[in-house]
Simulated assay, not measured.
Amino acid sequence: MTHTTVAVIGGGPAGLLLARMLHNAGIDSVVLESRDRAYVEQRQRAGMLEQGTVDALRECGAGARMDREGLPHNGIELRFDRRAHRLDFPALTGGSSVMIYAQTEIVKDLVALQLDEGGPLLFEAQATAIGDGYVTYRHEGQEKTLTCDFIVGADGFHGISRAVVPSGRVYEADYPYSWLGVLADVAPSTDELIYAHSPRGFALHSMRSPTVSRLYLQVPNDTDPAAWDDEQIWDELDLRFAIDGDWKLARGPITAKAVTPMRSFVTEPMRHGRLFLAGDAAHIVPPTGAKGLNLAVADVVVLARALEHWRRTGKDDLLDDYGDICLRRVWRAEHFSWFMTTMLHLAPGQSDYETRLQLAQLHRIATSEAAAAELALNYTGTV
């Protein structure tokens, strides 16, 4: 049996960033990750970082490679009615922007720091039970117990932590469509993300690096990605991104395909006794607003500060406020993600009236500085 101040369940970006921030604050921790290192470092997820996330990574010493290799973005493009409309984030927000830097790379950076400088990071360590001040886990074929002052559940929606919180209130919504996401070895056809509303459904052009494109198509739920061959995917993307003009979508080898369902989920409270939930263990947003990773980072920034305050003063007041502080931001992001999703996607059986309402909202954003600023402030995490 071993003891630590903070047991962190989950070695994704939230758990690893928290461990790094605690290390810098002089608070010991142990990170338990159920998967092996290769899986964790290759797990494809988000890649759009708000300014607050960029600042948190820099402040904890994990921003050097991001600053060298990340792609700063000063806006996004909305496409509808075969026209393109760019939103200038710094102009609309008073200077805020975003950064494209893949979650896989954030995790690699944080793993390397934790193994070199931080507390124990145990891969293939499956948490099996959570109690009052302890976690039992299976590692290297043995059942072990880790005692602790606090437990942080950063193990995602399907992890053990969420189920431990009793009498919680759950809010959730499922959407009647999914995303078919692909990675392609081709330079992006755009300098900034393109969000497209088309009569055929939604499409998104993103990127992971100057040589790797990340693209998405709205598809029906339960779509088998293998049912789409590469040519079909590129042809459909061409149709959905089409505008009047000479813009052209570059094609290249598709190296990965996956279907992502769209859902919203929030559980309250985010704390039970010594257990604190963070990231996807407490909330999920549809990816249209690019909020999932950023919400997880915001959670652990609040929690790290509360734990540092507890260590310095012995007071629990900031720990007691953790859930309320985080949930205010969570619900703002839930609303924005719902807004972006329902404005840009076509629901099955959608009427012409509903489509015209979507286009009216898009036209307002394209022609009203106030409406454009509201989107930009939410997208960059400024509000």
Rank of each mutant, 00 (worst) to 15 (best):
C148K: 01
H139N: 04
L204C: 15
V152F: 01
D116Y: 06
T260C: 09
Q350V: 15
T93L: 05
H23W: 12
S368E: 10
V170K: 08
R329E: 13
E33P: 08
V54E: 05
V300N: 00
D109F: 04
A360Y: 07
W234V: 13
R79E: 10
G12T: 08
Y137I: 00
P269I: 06
G323F: 05
D244E: 15
D321Q: 13
G15L: 00
T313P: 02
L78T: 11
Q350I: 15
V6C: 14
D174R: 14
K248Y: 10
G15Q: 01
V6T: 15
E50Q: 15
T341F: 12
Q126A: 10
Y322V: 08
A290D: 13
A227M: 06
A46F: 07
M66L: 12
L87F: 07
G245N: 06
S264M: 03
L71H: 02
P287D: 14
R356H: 10
D149E: 15
A278S: 12
D224E: 08
R79V: 12
E77K: 02
Q232R: 15
G75V: 08
L319M: 07
L318A: 10
A163H: 15
G61K: 02
E117I: 11
G15F: 00
G118M: 10
T128K: 09
G12C: 03
D321E: 13
Y137F: 04
V152C: 00
W179N: 14
E50V: 12
L57Q: 01
L307D: 07
T136R: 06
G131N: 06
G279E: 01
C148M: 01
A25I: 09
G381K: 01
V107R: 01
V135F: 09
L357Y: 07
F150R: 00
E33Y: 12
E354R: 13
S368H: 12
A56W: 02
I233R: 09
V152W: 00
G159E: 03
G153L: 00
G141M: 04
V300K: 01
G26L: 11
R274C: 04
A25T: 12
L32G: 04
T93M: 07
A376L: 03
A366D: 02
T382H: 11
R356D: 08
E192S: 13
P188Y: 06
D316V: 03
H3T: 14
G118L: 08
R312D: 14
Q142V: 14
L16T: 11
R20C: 09
F202C: 12
L183F: 11
F123S: 02
A366R: 00
Q142G: 09
D88P: 07
G156M: 02
A250N: 13
S34F: 00
P261Q: 03
F123G: 03
L193H: 06
L146P: 00
A333Y: 03
S368W: 11
L193C: 12
Q103P: 12
L249I: 13
F202H: 13
G381S: 09
H205W: 02
R86E: 14
S167Q: 15
H158I: 05
L295D: 01
W228A: 11
D224C: 04
A184C: 07
Y134H: 15
K291P: 02
Y101L: 07
M99Y: 03
I100R: 00
L375F: 15
G63K: 04
I160P: 05
S351Q: 04
M270P: 02
F157R: 01
